[in-house]
Computed example of a mutant assay.
Amino acid sequence: MPGALAATAGVAENSSKDWVVFTGKLPSVLKKKIKMASAESGMKQQEILAEALSQWLQKNGR
């Protein structure tokens, strides 16, 4: 199912050329939750963040 979620997030699965490096800070509690979600779902942390950010941008008209 990770592929379907990546597609939903507007990113191409297994296409590293479409990814760029982004460095940002997160609260430590959120980082721990993303790490646990990644382990449980089999998705990469960057895929989870990309999906969440894409949903937020869409919800807020961007």
Rank of each mutant, 00 (worst) to 15 (best):
K32V: 06
A50E: 03
G10W: 08
E51D: 01
G61N: 15
S16F: 08
S38T: 12
V29Q: 02
A37H: 08
G61P: 07
G3Y: 07
A7L: 11
I48M: 02
V29L: 00
A37F: 04
Q58W: 06
G24V: 09
G3T: 07
T8K: 05
T8Q: 01
L53Q: 03
S15K: 14
A7S: 00
F22H: 15
Q55K: 15
N60I: 01
M1P: 00
K32L: 02
A7H: 00
S15W: 13
S28W: 07
I34C: 08
E47I: 04
S38L: 12
S15V: 00
K32G: 08
W56M: 09
L26E: 12
K44S: 08
G10K: 04
D18R: 12
E40Q: 13
K31L: 10
V21M: 03
A12N: 06
L49D: 05
K35Q: 13
A50Y: 11
G3K: 00
V29A: 05
R62N: 13
K59A: 14
P27V: 08
F22W: 07
M1L: 00
S28V: 10
L57V: 01
K59P: 01
V11P: 01
A37L: 15
Q46Y: 10
A50I: 01
Q58P: 02
S15R: 13
T23F: 02
S54R: 01
N60Y: 10
M36D: 08
K59Q: 13
L30Q: 07
E47P: 05
S16E: 06
K35W: 07
A7I: 03
M36S: 12
W56Y: 15
V21E: 05
L49C: 12
W56Q: 10
T23D: 12
A37Q: 14
N14M: 02
E13Q: 11
K35G: 04
G10Q: 04
E13K: 02
A39E: 15
N60F: 03
N14S: 07
E47W: 14
K17C: 09
G3H: 00
L30C: 04
A50F: 09
E51I: 00
E40T: 01
W56L: 09
V21F: 03
W56H: 13
L5V: 05
E51G: 01
A4I: 07
T23L: 07
R62C: 09
S54I: 07
K33A: 13
G61V: 00
T23E: 14
G24I: 02
N14C: 03
V20L: 04
A9T: 15
A9D: 12
G24R: 10
P27E: 14
V20W: 04
I34D: 05
I34Y: 10
A52Y: 11
L57T: 12
K17M: 13
G10R: 09
A37W: 03
A7W: 00
F22I: 14
A4F: 00
M36G: 04
N60P: 10
N60C: 10
Q45N: 06
R62E: 10
E40S: 06
N60Q: 09
K32R: 10
S38I: 05
K31W: 13
I34F: 11
A4Q: 10
V20S: 14
I34L: 15
M1C: 00
K31M: 14
